Amino acid sequence: MNAEQFSDNIQSWMDLSGSGRHAEAEKFYYKELFEAVITAFCKKYTGRKTGGLLVSLLGFSPEPVILTASLLQPATHLIVTTPLKQEIVQVLEKYLQPGYQLVILEDTSFKTIYKRIKESLSDFPTSNITVDITGGKKSMVAAAAIFAKDYGSEIVYVDFEVYLKELRKPKPGTEYLNVIYDPLTDQPETSIING
């Protein structure tokens, strides 16, 4: 898809969403835009490390989980979430590589979340861990971030350059990977001691 066609499709999607035809807009997004969004997102980070364990938090929007997984190509992908709507599961099945694991939380307490992520290390031992905190409840994000720091894991967030306030969505194609914490470079306690 060329840039003009992509731009036209974004406008069509915005028009559908803005007119209140949300179900139609969502179908259009996945049919006409999302593959191009994935491709553009991955092109921005050619040569980035892949493999390892990816822990994704999932709320109501599966797109960030799919973008991060498409980029990182994890050997193991653990998606931590609360009970999901079937439509979200169908989107995951369509766009993710087979083999990801859904961890449905019985509650979102710190202990439950931390324990469930930690248990995954027993099943999939690796030191190459990335935690994507884009989705999920704030309690999930806090527990996952503390886990990531404790286990020397990279923390990432799918962010965007343009937010369409009236639609409460990022403008397609403006998504980017924000590295919140990289244990190889972001050790403030080490620089305070050594500096």
Rank of each mutant, 00 (worst) to 15 (best):
N2K: 08
E4L: 15
S7P: 01
D8G: 05
I10G: 05
S12H: 12
W13V: 04
D15K: 10
L16T: 01
S19H: 08
E26R: 02
K27I: 12
Y30F: 15
V37F: 03
A40G: 02
A40S: 13
A40N: 07
T46F: 07
R48K: 15
K49Q: 13
T50F: 03
V55N: 04
L58K: 06
F60V: 04
A69S: 14
L72D: 07
Q73P: 00
P74Y: 02
A75C: 09
P83S: 06
Q86W: 08
V91E: 02
L92Q: 09
Y95L: 01
Q101G: 01
Q101N: 03
D107N: 15
T108G: 01
I113M: 12
Y114I: 10
L121E: 03
S122Y: 14
F124G: 01
N128S: 14
T130G: 03
K137H: 14
S139Q: 11
S139E: 13
S139P: 00
V141P: 00
A142Y: 09
A148H: 08
K149C: 00
Y151D: 00
G152L: 12
Y157E: 07
V158T: 14
Y163A: 07
Y163I: 10
E166T: 10
E175W: 06
Y176R: 05
N178P: 01
N178G: 02
N178H: 14
I180L: 15
I180F: 07
L184N: 12
T185Q: 09
D186V: 10
D186P: 05
P188R: 09
E189A: 12
E189G: 06
G195Q: 12
